[in-house]
Design a protein around this nucleic acid. Structure first.
Lengths: 198, 198
DNA sequence: GGTAAATCCGACCATGTGGTCTCTTTATAG
DNA sequence: CTATAAAGAGACCACATGGTCGGATTTACC
């Protein structure tokens, strides 16, 4: 694999596990057995490096795990349930889970680096727009109750997912997942379309 | 005010705003016009310093904003609604809001400092226990539906609160708050006791 | 007033950081 | 084979960090 790819992959891995500010370039280079020269040949600075990682790896990762799985014409509530379940199941089985990578970076850079924050917020916006659209389509197709505020539901869903991934890192991730999913279903039941054949 | 108190207060302030690892002791000392000698007279190390801040300030802060307000014999759903609303309203009006302080520190120290994580998780547990107890009491008093899983509801509530506070830091905190609260009420409506006088 | 303890000062140290620069190696093309 | 550019090595720099230490200053108490 090309050096540049290896640098980005290892960078994302370490930044996720240890945080951006607590991971030195030397850490990454040591792990890959590379030198400063190799790094600064491919990237202008640590910040430039991270921004490329965001665009090349993080954005795709979020897309493939949280956005693409909820696309389709089926019941959005079913799709979202399965999507969250899968994402959390992956986390449960990952002994090196440090929470939602996007949420973690949002927390770390908030108020510290506006440039990076803009790139991260862009990903958040894409997710939000897709969620809202999917929910609206679901409403149009008769899966959701007519009175549902789709923007509000999207915010609620994103919030709860970010939060539960943080909570899961503390203790008993499997139990946390189970409890979360049960209440997510409860919430979904309250916004789904009321049965017409009464 | 005593030097030790000033150090702790300013420390919490800066650690919250900039993060623990990105705030140097010199930053804090400069702001207070103190010297290294003063600092290391009162504290053994940066870590010891932070642990004392957790126990003396952070724990009380969480207690007074998230735990104490939901104590009482009224409808717990009403109390929690008001508690979250108040906490988020404070955040909205604070131009220097960086999300839920507890959630932020959990994210920052996860996988990096086990000692500090234990102290933080202790606070999380206290919050959780109080929430569960309050919900169970509410169920006993006929405010919640008999079938509600109180542990699950508590996890769901903590998750969503952590998450929305993270989301609020990105953009449009007021709108996020409004949307979140509307769906929280929706969720609460689905777990409240069904009307008896049918 | 004197003494001792509490409090604080600030120079200093070892270490680690992001980043630069010169030089060497390796591939590519004619 | 050779000229040329891409790719990488690693010594080096300026600076920041957590922490130490001997000394100065203030406070409390007899």
């Amino acid at each position: 694999m090309a050096t540049m790819q290896r640098l980005q992959n290892t960078g994302l891995e370490l930044f996720y596990a240890q945080g951006y500010y607590d991971t030195s370039i030397d850490d990454i280079l040591k792990k890959l057995d590379l030198s400063k020269g190799a790094f600064y040949y491919h990237f202008d600075s640590k910040e430039d490096y991270f921004i490329q990682i965001i665009q090349n790896l993080l954005a795709r990762k979020i897309y493939s795990t949280l956005i693409e799985p909820i696309e389709g014409h089926d019941n959005p509530l079913t799709l979202i349930t399965k999507c969250f379940d899968d994402a959390m199941e992956t986390a449960v089985h990952n002994e090196m889970d440090y929470g939602c990578i996007l949420s973690n970076f949002l927390t770390e850079f908030n108020g510290k680096n506006e440039v990076i924050m803009r790139h991260l917020n862009e990903i958040v916006t894409v997710w939000e727009v897709n969620l809202v659209t999917t929910l609206q389509k679901g409403k149009f197709n008769g899966y959701l109750d007519r009175h549902v505020d789709c923007e509000a539901a999207a915010t609620f869903l994103m919030s709860s997912y970010f939060g539960v991934r943080t909570l899961m890192t503390s203790a008993a991730p499997s139990a946390k997942k189970y409890r979360f999913m049960s209440q997510l279903r409860q919430y979904f039941k309250s916004i789904e379309a009321k049965s017409v054949n009464s």
